[in-house]
Simulated scan of single mutants.
Amino acid sequence: MEKKPITLPYVWNTPVNCVHPLTAFPYPLGIAAQSITTCDYYFEGRLRNDGNRRCGFQYTLDGSGIFQDSGGEYEIGPGKGFLWQIDDPETIYYYPENSRKPWRFIFITFYNAMDMTMEMCSRFGHVYHLAPENPMIANLRSFSRFDGTMIEMSSGECLNLISGIFAELLASAQENVHESPSTSIARRVKKYIHEHLGDSFTLKDAADFLKISQEHLSRTFKKETGMSPVEYVKNEKIKMACELLKSSPLSCKEILTELGYENSSYFTRIFRKAVGKSPSEYRLKR
């Protein structure tokens, strides 16, 4: 039996109204975030009757989902996103039955960008890697402050927003062509860290994965980022903890577990040192 798409609650939702849109210019329809825990989240392009030449970009913050196209099936974990035409009959995306964590993501849908979307997907595929600190991702997340309110944007603002998304996706697709070996190592370490953010990080595991020595990995990463891999992991876990405390219903203990910490006292201590408040205080004063 075919699954039909259903609407599930948003963590936050910001619809956009483009004031006096220009015929040939792209414009966003809305930006939102969801936290999915049910297999009812299942979308097939061929079953969508709401596509109407709309396209979108969806980016994972935590957990993972599955995206499928004619080329195969891809796990969309933290730091990954997919670009797609909403009613493309060859695409499917869903929350897998064996998932243990919520799939937390942000997404934007837009109109009048069909040609750009099709060319990007044709040349580089649907799936892209972007670090959480990428300015485009940070910009999309900033729309959470308008939750529930339709915002108005000029045609120029709409064009800048959509063009910025495509510019970052294009840069991500092409970065391997121009980056130095040390930059490549740092990028791959960051990618590994974000894909295993809920695990206990060890330098040995990362070095084994990249097939380089621990010393070379640590030295190169610090040269490129100014911090050790362990420091980077700690900072990223603090960022994720802040996001979960602000936007998820998980308890502090559950968040600690999600991030791979077993010692609550240690987690509270490093969180307070970084943020100036305990996790519970941060949640109350957010």
Rank of each mutant, 00 (worst) to 15 (best):
164 G>N: 05
150 M>N: 15
87 D>N: 12
173 A>N: 14
237 K>G: 01
97 E>T: 09
180 S>D: 15
139 N>D: 06
153 M>N: 12
84 W>V: 09
113 A>D: 05
218 S>C: 06
155 S>M: 02
96 P>R: 15
238 I>V: 15
87 D>M: 06
191 K>M: 07
173 A>F: 10
285 K>D: 13
80 K>I: 11
103 W>T: 01
215 E>L: 11
142 S>N: 02
107 F>E: 04
114 M>K: 09
204 K>Q: 14
197 L>F: 01
10 Y>H: 08
240 M>E: 03
256 L>M: 11
53 R>A: 12
12 W>C: 00
78 P>H: 00
29 L>V: 01
214 Q>E: 15
114 M>I: 14
196 H>R: 02
53 R>M: 10
184 S>A: 12
75 E>Y: 13
110 F>C: 04
90 E>G: 09
145 R>V: 09
167 A>Q: 15
6 I>Y: 03
157 E>N: 09
132 P>G: 08
133 E>L: 08
247 S>I: 12
121 C>E: 05
66 I>L: 07
162 I>P: 06
21 P>C: 03
123 R>T: 10
27 Y>M: 01
281 E>N: 08
163 S>E: 14
38 T>A: 08
44 E>C: 09
244 L>G: 00
241 A>I: 04
103 W>Y: 04
270 I>Y: 07
207 A>R: 11
220 T>H: 10
268 T>E: 10
257 T>P: 08
182 S>G: 08
106 I>G: 03
284 L>F: 14
118 M>K: 12
215 E>W: 12
85 Q>E: 11
186 A>R: 03
149 T>F: 13
12 W>K: 08
232 Y>D: 10
162 I>G: 05
193 I>G: 04
102 P>R: 02
67 F>E: 04
247 S>V: 07
137 I>T: 00
169 L>T: 01
102 P>G: 00
237 K>H: 03
127 V>Q: 00
192 Y>C: 06
242 C>W: 03
29 L>A: 02
85 Q>F: 06
185 I>N: 08
262 E>V: 03
282 Y>R: 01
246 K>Y: 04
210 L>D: 10
39 C>Q: 15
276 G>K: 04
68 Q>H: 15
196 H>P: 00
